[in-house]
Simulated assay, not measured.
Amino acid sequence: AGGLQFPSTMFRMAGVDTERAMAVSRDEMHALLERAVADGYELPRTAGGIYSVREGIVHLNITRVKVDGRSPDPFDPASLSRAESEGRRQARRYLEVFRRYVPGYERAFILDTGAELGVRETRRIVGAHVMTTEEVIGERKFDDAIAPSCWPIEEHGAGRSTRWVWMSPGGYCQIPYRALLPRGPENLLVAGRCLSATHEAQAALRITANCFSMGQAAGIAAAMAGDGRVADVDVPALQRALAAAGAVLAPRPEAAVDA
Rank of each mutant, 00 (worst) to 15 (best):
R54W: 00
H59W: 02
Y105M: 08
L4Q: 09
E96C: 08
I175C: 07
R26Y: 07
G228L: 12
R88A: 10
R107P: 01
R12K: 14
R45D: 01
H129F: 02
M10D: 07
E116G: 05
T113I: 06
G40K: 04
E28G: 12
D143H: 13
S8E: 10
F75S: 11
V233P: 09
F6N: 00
A255Y: 00
G219P: 06
V233Q: 10
F98H: 11
Q216S: 09
A38N: 13
T132N: 12
T113H: 14
F75I: 02
D76M: 11
S85W: 04
T122H: 08
G56H: 09
P236D: 01
T46Y: 09
G171I: 13
R240V: 00
E200Q: 13
A14W: 06
A217Y: 02
I220K: 11
V58R: 06
V97Q: 12
L188N: 06
I62G: 08
L111M: 12
G69C: 11
S168G: 13
W166R: 15
L4G: 07
A47I: 12
F98A: 07
V119A: 02
L117E: 03
A201D: 03
T133E: 15
M13Y: 11
I125W: 12
M29Y: 09
E200Y: 00
S81K: 14
R64S: 15
P148E: 04
P74T: 07
N187H: 11
P176D: 06
R120V: 01
P251V: 11
R229P: 06
A158G: 12
R163Y: 02
V136I: 15
P236S: 02
P103W: 04
R107G: 03
V119K: 03
R123K: 10
